[in-house]
Design a protein around this nucleic acid. Structure first.
Lengths: 205, 205
DNA sequence: GGGACTCTAGTACGGTGTACGTAAAAGGCA
DNA sequence: TGCCTTTTACGTACACCGTACTAGAGTCCC
C-alpha cells in the first residue's frame, strides 16, 4: 500500500544514499515497485516532495527545553540544526531556498523566542536572528564544499598541488596548512557563533 | 569564429537572463548558431564552463588598494563580493561549491592579507576568514531566497497569509512584520559584518 | 445496477549532458 | 605542389529527467 509517508521515507533514503540529484521520480517508483505516475497521487510535484523532505530533516532537530537560558538555547538550536543538516548533506544547498514547513517554523519560532528573552532591542533581535541563521547556513555550506572535495580526492589533490606549487598566493598556502592538520571543526563553528552571541549581548538594553 | 571567451560570455548572458538552470548546452549552441558538440572543443564539460563563469563573476570584484587599513579592506571586499553575487544571482548557490579560479583565489588572498595586518593570533585570523566568508555566503543566500519569494509573489502571498492567520507562531509573525516595512538590507549586512570584525579585534594580540 | 470517488499506471512530449564517429578546413613541411 | 597532422565543427544516438494526459480498475454509497 502506497502512502505519502512511505514515499517521503523512501525518497529520504535515496537522497541520503546518493544525493538529491539522484532522487528522481523514476528511481523512487522503481524502489517502491510502483508506476511513476502513482506517486503523483500523493505528491503534487517533485518540488512538493522535496519540501516535505526538508521539513522531515527539520523535524530531527530537538528544540531546547523551554526554561533553557537564551544563550544556551541559541547554541543548542544552532548546533542541532547544523548536525541535522550534516546528517543529510543534500539538504544544505536547498534548506534556505525552500519555504519552511511546520517543523522548521517551530525551530524559527524557538530561536526568536530565545532572542526575545535576551533583553535586546527589537530590531537587534531581528538582526541577530539572521546573523545566527546565516552563520549556520554559511558554515554548513562550507563543510559541504569540503566534503565534496574530499569525496573527489584525486581531482582535489591535483588542484591543491597546483596552488601549493605556485607562488602566487602565499597566504592561501598557509591557510590550506591550517586546514590540513587540525580537528577544529566543532570549535570553528562555536567560535563564530560566540562572536555573534557576544556581539548581541553587548547590544542588550 | 567560436572561441572560449565568446562561449563564456554568451553563457553568462543566458545565466543572467534566465538562471543557471536554463543555461543548457543546447540553448547555448542555438544562441551561438553552432552545433552543440562544437562547444566541447573549447570546454571540457558543462561543469568546466560553469567554473569559468563563476570566476568571471569573481573578476568583477575590484580588490581594495594595498594600503587600505585592514578593517576597511575587509569591509570593502565583503561588500564588493556580495554586490557581484547579487549581480549574478545564479552564482550564489554554487559559489562555495566550485573550486576557485584565479580571480577568486586573488580575492581570498587579499582577504587573508587584510586579516594578517590585523595583528591577530594566526589561528584567530584563519577562523575569522571563515567567519567572514560564511557570513557573505549565508547573507547572499538569504537575499536570494527572498528574491525568489518575491518573484513568485502569488504563491508567497498565500503562504504568508497562512502563517499570519494561524496563531501557532506569534514571534514569526512579528518577524515578518520586521521584514515588510523596512529598507535595512545594506545595514543588515553591515550589522553582522561589524559584529564579526568587532569580535575579531577583541582577539587582537 | 449505476454513479462517484480513489488509486494505479502506460504512453508520450519535450527537455537534459555527452560519448562516439565523421568530415572538412588549415597549417606545416617535403 | 603534394602529403600529413592538427584543429575545428557537428549529426546522431543513448540514457536519463519531470510530468500532462488518459484510461482502467477497485470500492463505496444510494
Amino acid at each position: 500500500m502506497l502512502t505519502r509517508e512511505l514515499i517521503v521515507e523512501t525518497a529520504m533514503q535515496l537522497a541520503d544514499a546518493d544525493g538529491i540529484d539522484k532522487m528522481s521520480m523514476r528511481r523512487l517508483a522503481t524502489e517502491l515497485d510502483c508506476g511513476v505516475m502513482s506517486l503523483y497521487h500523493y505528491v503534487a510535484d517533485k518540488d512538493a516532495l522535496i519540501e516535505a523532505l526538508v521539513d522531515q530533516v527539520a523535524s530531527e532537530v530537538a528544540p531546547p527545553a523551554a526554561d533553557t537560558p537564551w544563550r544556551e538555547a541559541a547554541q543548542e538550536l544552532a548546533a542541532a540544526t547544523l548536525a541535522a543538516q550534516l546528517n543529510h548533506p543534500w539538504v544544505i544547498s536547498i534548506w534556505s531556498m525552500t519555504w519552511p514547513g511546520p517543523h522548521r517554523f517551530a525551530l524559527i519560532e524557538r530561536l526568536l523566542e530565545a532572542l526575545a528573552q535576551a533583553d535586546l532591542p527589537a530590531d537587534i533581535a531581528d538582526l541577530g536572528f539572521h546573523a545566527l541563521t546565516n552563520h549556520i547556513q554559511g558554515f554548513a555550506q562550507q563543510r559541504l564544499a569540503f566534503g565534496q572535495l574530499e569525496a573527489q580526492a584525486d581531482e582535489t589533490a591535483g588542484r591543491v598541488a597546483a596552488i601549493m606549487g605556485s607562488d602566487e598566493f602565499p597566504r592561501v598556502i598557509d591557510h590550506i596548512a591550517f586546514h590540513q592538520h587540525d580537528e577544529t571543526d566543532r570549535d570553528e563553528f562555536r567560535f563564530t557563533l560566540d562572536l555573534i552571541l557576544d556581539g548581541l549581548e553587548r547590544h542588550a538594553s
